[in-house]
């Protein structure tokens, strides 16, 4: 496992942390994500398991993560990067991992992140006629939204 970690460390601008056996975190800056993913694929991480976003609202950042898998080494590598919450834009990775295309559609809809190079980014995917804040953002209050849009049925019980 350590030789693969060394190989990853060879990629420019990455910070590698080994979480436990078969789990590696690879942190890169925003501008180096695509080149890192490309290099990761060359190393042998052929599969993108999941790509998604964490809303780090306290740091005013979106954390984008790509869970990669290599069958050869049986290792999951998680590439992470952080982008600004204001006017968030990422570059598409679908030329490297075709399955990223759909994940990016979901990300752009659920977090309002624009994906450069992905023609489906911004088109409605799961939601229909959504006019509110992107719903997976932490500042979107789902309880408030429900109470404004739906009628609640209350049984008579007394909540002291």
């Amino acid at each position: 496992m350590m030789d693969i970690v060394d190989k990853i460390k060879g990629i420019e601008g990455v910070k590698v942390t080994v979480q436990r056996e078969n789990r590696i975190f690879v942190d890169v800056s925003e501008d180096k994500v695509i080149s890192t993913l490309y290099n990761m694929k060359l190393i042998g991480f052929h599969q993108l398991s999941v790509q998604n976003v964490i809303d780090r609202i306290k740091d005013n950042k979106f954390e984008i993560f790509y869970v990669l898998y290599s069958r050869e080494y049986k290792i999951n590598a998680i590439v992470r990067t952080w982008i600004d919450r204001e006017n968030p834009v990422i570059k598409t990775a679908d030329k490297i991992y075709p399955s990223a295309h759909t994940w990016e559609r979901e990300i752009s809809e659920m977090f309002g992140i624009k994906v450069d190079g992905n023609e489906d980014s911004g088109k409605p995917f799961i939601l229909e006629n959504w006019k509110d804040l992107p719903p997976m953002r932490k500042d979107f209050d789902s309880v408030k939204y429900s109470s404004e849009h739906f009628v609640f049925r209350h049984s008579e019980g007394e909540n002291e």
Binding site: I54, V67, P98, S99, T102
Partner: peptide, 28 residues
């Protein structure tokens, strides 16, 4: 099938992302 889980040290998960195989199988 995977769960990506993020905890911020409180009693509720900060973020859970579910990876289902069908996501890729359908669209890609």
């Amino acid at each position: 099938h995977g769960f990506y889980m993020v905890s911020d040290g409180t009693g509720k998960p900060y973020r859970v992302a579910v990876r289902g195989a069908s996501h890729t199988h359908m669209f890609t």
